[in-house]
């Protein structure tokens, strides 16, 4: 597939997600992001215990000098680094929260909704995994599991995943614990579970489910997606704030609560991070304004640790 000139030219992984998403559909954007991401890796995430040489590529600033192929340098007087390809049988499943709360954006004109951000992140992540021959699957859920694609490494799996992502739409409430229970059934072999959600869930149940996965030997990575408008209460005046999932409302003045709210969010994030890491679960807090490349890098680091 031919990429648009800008997609081919720019490091889309480092651009503003909203700007990047305007360049095309999920598939195109994910490819552009992954290309940029892979070309800019300073430290190869594919380096494992059983690696074999795959190809040379031109040296880029930031590459580690130990991967320089000095023989080629001597022969051709050009800098090339050696790239290795790892053979693996990793089974990765991306568990995506598609509840109604994920459909929200604090500034729709300038920021992606949490759902749009999460689907594009999931697509890019799936592409990265599939390119390194990891079997990758997808589970979408709100108050029930909306789609479930078993992990496969076969050609066409990524397109299957992309279509599934395109078919998903923000739905009802959030019942992550059921979806995670379903995941345990789907993931019979030990593998990687990437959980992408705004974590507006029953915290104890979700923690229990995630720890259970970890107990079953899965490597679990959690992406806590938040809109900047949720991080910082930036509404103008007094308003009745309504929960999109339950319809419950509360009257509050952001002017009075802003600082306390920010502290509450920080406390919640800290609690999630501490609870998850205590259970050996990687936790990444990302904003919908965070470039996709940053999120991918965090996932790649987790993948590397998994080996």
């Amino acid at each position: 597939m031919a990429l648009p000139s800008r997609v081919a030219r720019d490091r889309l992984d480092l651009l503003d997600p909203h700007e990047v998403s305007g360049l095309g559909g999920i598939e195109l954007v994910a490819e552009g992001v992954v290309e940029g991401f892979l070309s800019g890796l300073h430290r190869s995430p594919y380096r494992g215990f059983s690696v074999e040489f795959a190809e040379h590529r031109p040296y880029q600033p930031g590459d580690e000098l130990r991967y320089l192929d000095w023989k080629v340098v001597g022969r051709r007087d050009r800098l090339y680094v050696k790239q290795y390809e790892e053979e693996t049988n990793l089974r990765a499943t991306i568990v995506l929260d598609v509840s109604r709360s994920m459909a929200w954006s604090g500034d729709p004109e300038r920021r992606l909704s949490k759902f749009d951000y999460a689907t594009r992140l999931a697509a890019a992540l799936a592409l990265v995994l599939l390119r390194q021959r990891d079997a990758t699957g997808l589970i979408g859920f709100d108050d029930e599991v909306r789609c479930a694609i078993a992990p496969r490494a076969r050609p066409g799996q990524w397109h299957l995943l992309v279509r599934a992502l395109l078919d998903l739409a923000p739905g009802g409430g959030t019942a992550a614990e059921q979806a995670l229970g379903r995941v345990t059934g789907l993931l019979r072999r030990r593998g990687l579970v990437v959980f992408i959600s705004d974590l507006l869930v029953d915290r104890d149940l979700v923690l229990l489910a995630l720890r259970y996965l970890r107990h079953r030997g899965h490597q679990v990575v959690v992406f806590h997606v938040m809109d900047p408008g949720e991080l910082d209460l930036d509404a103008a005046g007094e308003a009745r704030f309504v929960d999109p999932e339950t319809g419950e409302g509360v009257v509050a003045s952001p002017r009075d609560l802003r600082r306390d709210y920010r502290a509450t969010v920080e406390r919640v994030v800290t609690a999630w991070r501490r609870s998850l890491r205590t259970g050996g679960i990687a936790y990444h807090h990302v904003s919908t304004a965070t470039p996709f490349g940053h999120a991918l890098r965090r996932a790649a680091e987790g993948r590397a640790r998994l080996g």
Binding site: E230, L233, R240, P244, V251
Partner: peptide, 29 residues
């Protein structure tokens, strides 16, 4: 008066904040 409705998903955080700061805010007002 009745304030305008604003959809806000992170209601649990807001409720928690409002619950904790309600007394201080009332005293300040």
């Amino acid at each position: 008066r009745r304030p305008p409705d604003v959809v806000f998903p992170a209601m649990r955080y807001l409720r928690q904040t409002e619950r904790e700061a309600k007394r201080t805010i009332r005293l300040r007002h």
